[in-house]
Amino acid sequence: MAKTYYDPSDLRKFGKITEWNEELGNKFFDYYGKVFEEGALTAREKSLIALAVAHTEQCPYCIDAYTKDGLQRGVTKEEMMEAIHVGAAIKSGATLVHGVQMMNKVNKLDG
């Protein structure tokens, strides 16, 4: 067994998940491919969203994949970093907005 949980070369094997469940695997990849096609959003915009989400999900495979994808689309490092800050802002906002729940509870229990 591998000594680490993540191996960069595993990303190349992603497609192999269909080998143990062809129907669901294929449905997923069809869906995935369709999502990233040019639509109301450009493929470039989708790539930046994917990069931000890759960070909030802290998926190393996705970070590798969408950093490379962004470079291929001519996305600059400044644009990439800004996208990550959007993800980070939502992530920290999501934490902090729960502070209202804490405040509500304190007010109810000890107000």
Partner: peptide
């Protein structure tokens, strides 16, 4: 490309350029 990656879609790149 400026590094170890493949070029993106030619038409989309042309539009951005």
């Amino acid at each position: 490309p400026s590094g170890a990656f493949l070029p993106g879609d030619q038409m989309a790149m042309e539009k951005d350029f």
